[in-house]
Amino acid sequence: MSDRSQLISSGQPFTFDSARDAEFERLIKRYPIRESMIMPALWLAQEQEGWLSTEAIAYVAERVGTYPAKVFELATFYTMYHLKPVGKYHLCVCRTLSCYLREKQEIVDYLAAELGLRPGEVSEDGMFSLEEVECLGHCGTAPVIQVNGEFHEEMNVEKLKTLLAGLD
């Protein structure tokens, strides 16, 4: 969602916490080459920090035993990796076929107006970020949005109001 051309420093050193360290060690045994661990390690880092800083990318490279450039390449190719912080609530609205037919635009417009955000932006207080994404695999209950990974189906403005009221 963000500018994917550069990394931002968090100013903090990065290492996996013990649970993630254990998960890394569990997974690495499952692959015959270490590079296969780049994506899983990026996920672990992002789950821990919420986004991927320069430090996290460097750490993943070192843990996997590869170049930071290679890790960075994957972090830019795959759009779910965040190269800058997202909001405390990250709202993804599906914009493709079935949701389009079921008026996803109303959802986008309402959220944009209510949060004062255009898709791709993060609110100044860091509470919300809005993103338009491709098919979320819930087309039979369109339009759908995903908030911090959780699906909300058959959305309409009424349901959005309730949903937003519950986020603080």
């Binding site: 997974l27 499952r30 692959y31 296969s36 994506m39 899983p40 990026l42 996920w43 190719f77 795959y78 759009t79 779910m80 990796y81 994404v133 491709e134 098919c135």
Partner: peptide
């Protein structure tokens, strides 16, 4: 059996 998680590329 190992799950490999994608990250948003159709």
């Amino acid at each position: 059996v190992t799950v490999h998680r994608g990250a948003g590329a159709y």
